[in-house]
C-alpha cells in the first residue's frame, strides 16, 4: 500500500492480511458530536423526570445517572454493540482492537476514560495532535488501549447477469480477464448508458452497438468466470 493510504493491514494467525480503513478526525469528531447530543438530551430528560417524581432525592439519583452516563455511555455501547456507539453507527464507524478483534471492557474503559486527557488543554488539543501525528489516527486513549476506529465494510451483493455465455475468441491476460468479470458482476450497479459506453470499447472484438454490445461483453464475463459450460 502507498504510504499515503489510510488502509491498515493486520495479519491474522492464519497468515491472511485483513484490510481496514482507518477513520480520520472529521468523521470521528462528527460521530462524537452526535453521541454528545444524545447523551445530554437523555441527561436533561432524566434530570427533569426524576426530579419531578422524587424531589430532592431525585437530584441525587439523577447525579448518579449523570455519572454513569458521563463515563460509561461509550463503554457500554462499545462492549455490547461490538464497538459501535449510536454516533459511530451514523457514520458507519467501529472501534476494534489493534489486531482486528472486537474490543472488551478493559480496552474500552481505558480509551474512553482517557478522553478527559485528550480533551486537554483546549477542545481536544492532545487528542487532535496525537491523531494527526499517528498513522492510524489514534488519540491518546487509543494508543494506551491499543484500539483503532475503522470504517465498516460495505457489503456489496454481486451476481453475474443472466445472459448467454460466449468466449471472446481472443487471448486475454489475467488483468483483462478480471476487468471483464468485474464488468459482469457490476451489471446491477452501472447505469445503462455507462454499460453501453464501456461495452462499446470492445467493438473491435464483438462488432456490436448499444444493448447488443453489453450482452456480448456480459457473455464474455460469464465465460471467463467459467459459468457457461455447465448451463
Amino acid at each position: 500500500m502507498a504510504a499515503t493510504d489510510t488502509i491498515y493491514e493486520v495479519e491474522t494467525p492464519e497468515g491472511i492480511m485483513l484490510h481496514m480503513r482507518v477513520a480520520g478526525l472529521t468523521v470521528r469528531a462528527s460521530a462524537y458530536l452526535i453521541d454528545f447530543c444524545i447523551r445530554w438530551s437523555v441527561n436533561i430528560c432524566v434530570l427533569i423526570v426524576v426530579e419531578a417524581i422524587f424531589g430532592d432525592a431525585g437530584v441525587g439519583l439523577s447525579l448518579i445517572f449523570l455519572f454513569l452516563n458521563e463515563w460509561f455511555y461509550p463503554v457500554l455501547f462499545e462492549v455490547f454493540k461490538n464497538g459501535v456507539t449510536p454516533g459511530k453507527r451514523t457514520f458507519k464507524l467501529r472501534v476494534v482492537s489493534g489486531d482486528g478483534t472486537p474490543i472488551g471492557w478493559q480496552a474500552s474503559i481505558i480509551r474512553n476514560f482517557l478522553l478527559v486527557v485528550d480533551f486537554l488543554p483546549l477542545f481536544y488539543g492532545f487528542g487532535i495532535v496525537s491523531a494527526l501525528l499517528d498513522k492510524r489516527f489514534r488519540r491518546l486513549g487509543d494508543l494506551a488501549a491499543d484500539t483503532i476506529v475503522v470504517y465498516e465494510k460495505e457489503t456489496s451483493k454481486t451476481s453475474l447477469p443472466n445472459v448467454e455465455a460466449e468466449h471472446p475468441g481472443i487471448d486475454l491476460n489475467i488483468n483483462e480477464q478480471r476487468a471483464l468479470i468485474a464488468f459482469g458482476e457490476r451489471h446491477m450497479m452501472l447505469s445503462k448508458s455507462r454499460k453501453v459506453e464501456l461495452a462499446e470499447i470492445l467493438d473491435e472484438v464483438h462488432d456490436q452497438k448499444n444493448e447488443e454490445a453489453v450482452l456480448k461483453v456480459q457473455g464474455y464475463s460469464l465465460a471467463l468466470a467459467g459459468k457457461g459450460r455447465d448451463s
Binding site: 422524587f54 424531589g55 430532592d56 432525592a57 437530584v59 441525587g60 439519583l61 439523577s62 447525579l63 448518579i64 449523570l66 455519572f67 458521563e70 463515563w71
Partner: peptide
C-alpha cells in the same frame, strides 16, 4: 431525601 442527594453528589464527584 437529602442523604440520597448527597450520595449522588459523592458518587458523581469523588468517583469522577
Amino acid at each position: 431525601a437529602d442523604d440520597i442527594q448527597m450520595l449522588g453528589f459523592y458518587i458523581f464527584n469523588n468517583v469522577g
